[in-house]
Design a protein around this nucleic acid. Structure first.
Lengths: 192, 192
DNA sequence: CTTTGTTGATTGACCAGTCAATAAACAATC
DNA sequence: GATTGTTTATTGACTGGTCAATCAACAAAG
C-alpha cells in the first residue's frame, strides 16, 4: 500500500484539513485526531509529518498567508500606474480565493492566536506592515505626505469590512466590499 | 467561613476572571480550574454557580457587551444634535473603559466564538445591528438617503481600527482611533 | 435542622505524543 | 533475478497527563 513521495501530499492534506477543522469546529475544539481523520490518515501520521499540533497550526497559517501574498503580488504586477496599484491592493484582499467563509474564519482565528503566540504575531505583523507599506507607496504619487495615514485608514477599513462580512448572515460579497473601501478612499482623496 | 449572599460576588469574580484568563492565555488553553483559581475559589464552586464552562463564557460575553451598551446609551443621552450623536457613538467605542488590551482581546475571542456558537452569534449580532442602526438614525438628518451605507462604513471602520490596535505593538490610543474614524466620515460627508 | 457556601476527592472521558511493528518500494550485491 | 538490506509510509496500541463535571461531606447562619 505505501507509495513513495507521499510527504508533500500528506502535508498539504493536513494543512487544508486544519483550516477546515478550525473553521468548522472553532479553535477551541480542534484535535489532531479530527484533523487527521478529515485528511484521511491516522493521527500518528500527522504527528510523524508535523511533530506537534502547534507546528500544524503554524503551517496552516503560513499557507493562508502565502496564498494571500501571492495574490497581492500577482495583482500588483498586473497594475499600471498609481491608481491601478491602489485598486489592485484593495481588490486583492477581496478576491474569491481569499474572501470565502472558510478562509475568513481562518484569518479570524489567526488574529486570536497572534494575541498569545509570539511566532503567530510575528508572521501576521509582517503581512500587516507589508500591506500598509504597499498602500503607502502606491498612494505617494497621488496623496504625497498624506499617503501614510491614508494607507493606515485603508488597511483598517479592509480589516473592518472583512470582519463584518465574516460575521454577517449572507454570503460574503467581495465586489461590494472592495467598492466600499474604494469609495471611502476616493472621498478622502477629494478633500485637500 | 461561609458568608451568606456570596452568589453575586462570586459570579462577578468569575466573569472578570474569565475575561482576564481568555485575554492572557488565549481561548485555546482556558480551563475552569485556572479561572476559578484566579477568582479565588475552587473549580467546584465555579461549576456550582454557572453549571458549565460554556455558561461562563456566555456570561462573560454578556458582561462585556452590557458594559459597552451602557457606555453607548450614556454617551447618546448626553449628546445634543445629530453631529454630536454621531460623534458620541464613535467615541463610545473607544473610551478608556472599553478600549483596553484586555477588553479588546475579549472582543476578538467573542468574534471567533460567534463563528461556531449560535448563542454567541445572536448576542453579537444584536449589538452590531444596534450600532449600525444608531449610526444610521444619527446620520439621517445630515446625510439623508446616504445615512445607511455611511453607517455601515463607519461601523466597519470602527471594527477595523479596533483590530489593528488590538494587534499593534504600542498601547491602544483611543483618542487617535476615534479621530481617525471621524476624519474619514467627515471627508465622506463633504462629497455630494 | 434547613438553607447556603464551600471544597477535596473522584470519575470518566479524552487528548497529544510515543513506539513498536508492518508493509511496500527501492537499491545494491551476488 | 534472487537475496539482502535500507528507506519511507503507515497504523494500532499505549501512556501520562489533564480536564469538565459530580458528589459527598463539612461549616456557618438563620
Amino acid at each position: 500500500m505505501p507509495k513513495l513521495g507521499m510527504e508533500p501530499i500528506r502535508r498539504d492534506a493536513l494543512i487544508k484539513a486544519t483550516i477546515a477543522e478550525i473553521a468548522q469546529t472553532g479553535a477551541l475544539e480542534v484535535t489532531v485526531s479530527r484533523i487527521a481523520r478529515r485528511a484521511g490518515m491516522s493521527s500518528a501520521l500527522a504527528h510523524h509529518y508535523f511533530g506537534s499540533k502547534d507546528a500544524m497550526f503554524l503551517a496552516a497559517m503560513r499557507h493562508v498567508l502565502s496564498v494571500y501574498g501571492a495574490e497581492v503580488r500577482g495583482a500588483l504586477a498586473a497594475a499600471d500606474g498609481p491608481q491601478a496599484r491602489v485598486q489592485a491592493l484593495i481588490r486583492a484582499s477581496f478576491t474569491p480565493t481569499s474572501f470565502r467563509r472558510e478562509v475568513i474564519a481562518a484569518w479570524l482565528n489567526f488574529y486570536v492566536l497572534a494575541q498569545t503566540r509570539a511566532d503567530a504575531a510575528r508572521l501576521l505583523g509582517v503581512y500587516q506592515r507589508r500591506l500598509v507599506s504597499n498602500l503607502g507607496h502606491a498612494l505617494r504619487p497621488v496623496a504625497g505626505a498624506r499617503a501614510r495615514p491614508l494607507a493606515e485608514g485603508v488597511a483598517a477599513m479592509i480589516d473592518g469590512v472583512y470582519l463584518r462580512e465574516a460575521l454577517g448572515a449572507g454570503e460574503p460579497d467581495g465586489r461590494a466590499a472592495a467598492r466600499m473601501v474604494e469609495d471611502w478612499l476616493a472621498a478622502q482623496l477629494r478633500t485637500a
